[in-house]
Design a protein around this nucleic acid. Sequence first.
DNA 1: TCACATTTGTCCGTATGTATC
DNA 2: AGATACATACGGACAAATGTG
Lengths: 251, 251
Amino acid sequence: MNVKKELFSPIKSKRTFEQVSGKIKTLIFDGVLKPGDRLPSEIELARQFMVSRQTIREALRILELSGFINVQKGGSGGPLIKDTILNTINNLFLDAFRLEKITAAELTFARIEIEKLVLYHVIDNAEASDIQALQQNIQKAKLKIESNAISADENIEFHNLLAKATKNPVFEIVVGSIEAVVRDLLTRLTPDIETSGDSTGYNEGMLKSKNAVSDHEAILNAILNKNREKACLLLEQHLREVGERLQSLMD
Amino acid sequence: MNVKKELFSPIKSKRTFEQVSGKIKTLIFDGVLKPGDRLPSEIELARQFMVSRQTIREALRILELSGFINVQKGGSGGPLIKDTILNTINNLFLDAFRLEKITAAELTFARIEIEKLVLYHVIDNAEASDIQALQQNIQKAKLKIESNAISADENIEFHNLLAKATKNPVFEIVVGSIEAVVRDLLTRLTPDIETSGDSTGYNEGMLKSKNAVSDHEAILNAILNKNREKACLLLEQHLREVGERLQSLMD
DNA sequence: TCACATTTGTCCGTATGTATC
DNA sequence: AGATACATACGGACAAATGTG
């Protein structure tokens, strides 16, 4: 154990690329760099930071994975500040769920409990715009189903919109992460049946998708009637069915 | 809108470093690479994957930030497979909380609701080992306080242990993320008073720390008595106080 | 439509600091 | 203390992609 390291602060604390990514991150936090802004090219960044291009690239990888920037190739391309980093969190959640070997049952159980909690606060805090967004979501899903398509994205989005209607961003993040896992499991496990444009009748996914939409509609109605108990019951029933589907798919 | 891109899968899917990091990630998911295993050096990886070192380095940056590996310098160093990626998630959560400008009140509110939920399932599902871990946590915190130190880490850990006692890893992840934000806020906002070894009496942090420990003890007792209502009430009161402290520190 | 400039993606070679044996 | 192994960082170069005129 080195005394110098213990008592005195590290002279060269972080690796260069970490300093670079940290600096840029700070600029974003402080609002100096805003979503939509474009960073200078790698070469220009290297010149300004007085480091090599390799170092800049490693810093950009960090920012990219953290969800702060997108990188576009070609003329007038370059690193672009993104508007949200939530999607990135969801991706990491996915990794964690796979690594921690979480079962469908555990996921469903927690999902039910947390979304019931969310539902409570939706009834209290939802604004007109939230209700409208939920209604639009259901309409969009219905349209998809009428045109013989699966409304998987819309069905997931419904739950995210619910969380948003709590008016508490923490719930948004938590639910968003869980929904991302559900979406991932569904898309990975559902066999894609090549029936686009083909009307050879319903398949399993279509039927489930349709049921989900009507479930959502019933839940929304219960919310509008401020009927907590009914809304909770419907939600639990709905999520339980989805959970059973997940379970069966994972066999 | 390019038809080729819409209908058919991408021919050249990903950048090389993404393919490399993806490949290694898969090996970890599949259990071929286990925690504690050491990856070959950058040069060796470059040779085996038949790519350049820069490409390998960018892949390693991704794996490092995703929490899959640690990188050690020096002889017989190299990339080391880590045992958990949860800490990384927490770091990204931190970014999100800062970026989304979440208030102390919103954080506290959600924390109370979610931890109350957790508490419910702790009473149902906690095993003897969980109870023991909670008791040890409290003892450790008491010892720290007796020796005039702040038990900040232990106090945060108490809540993580509660989540663990639900026996549902989803709750663990969710609570762990929230606690990481709380810890970050507390450590960043609390002025470090240089009184190590100095017994010039209590300061604000010490007092709060001590109160927290006795709160935790009371909560644990209520859990042992299977007294749901009391446990919930105590927890809510405790978290509300912490929340007020956060609020006052953020001014 | 087509050539051009810009920018990322990738490779190679080299030098340096640092931790381990 | 010296040798070794490794990550870190630099510079130059070319290919590929993409927007622009």
